[in-house]
Amino acid sequence: MSNGKKMEKIDLLVTGVGGQGVVLASDIIGETALAAGFDVKKTDTLGMAQRGGSVVSHVRLAPKVWSPLIKDGSVDLILAFEKLEAARWSHFLRPGGITITNNYEQPPLSVSLGQEVYPTDDVIAAALRRQTDQVYFVDGTGRVKELGNVRTLNIFMLGCFSVFSPLEAATWRESITRRMPENIREINLTAFEMGRKEIESVRIGKS
């Protein structure tokens, strides 16, 4: 199993629920990759979904990128801020790809109304494992609650992703610093470091 650090290109899906900061996170990935010399394209498919709907960003880093949308079955890594959303996009994953999922459940209205059923953890994991063994769950929401600001979840998740990315930690910190207003800069940088540590411990736990 590769550790993913030597990738020359990454096709990435960042997904979650409207309001979780998916778009900002994928923006920061793009800016960090540009700073590291990659060609970058990113596109958000949200439609009207900023109102609590399902959100997915396609982010592509390579020496040269054509399509902004990633082809089905060729995503290298899914970074999911909510676990139903991880399962929803699992068919995009390439064989042997990586998934990092925030182990957090936000039930859609149809589930609250009893019309549909939220999938069990087993169902979600099985959907992700159709293509890969590299299925990682992190307790992002729990960790950032401990940190004292749930809105840093997206940067925590970026920390998790950064370990697999071909981009230096320092470059990540620079682009987070550039994007965050001063009053929340430090707490986001802390969330980023927490994410890095969290994914490392989850990976060690696995092997």
Binding site: V17, G18, G47, M48, A49, Q50, R51, G52, G53, S54, D72, G73, L84, E85, A87, R88, S90, H91, L93, P107, P108, L109, S110, V111, E116, V117, Y118, P119, V123, A127, R130, Q131
Partner: peptide, 17 residues
């Protein structure tokens, strides 16, 4: 052949806030 989307997942349409 590519994978089908995972079946039976609840939808998450946009809502009034």
């Amino acid at each position: 052949k590519i994978l089908d989307p995972a079946s039976g997942l609840p939808r998450r349409p946009p809502l009034l806030c």
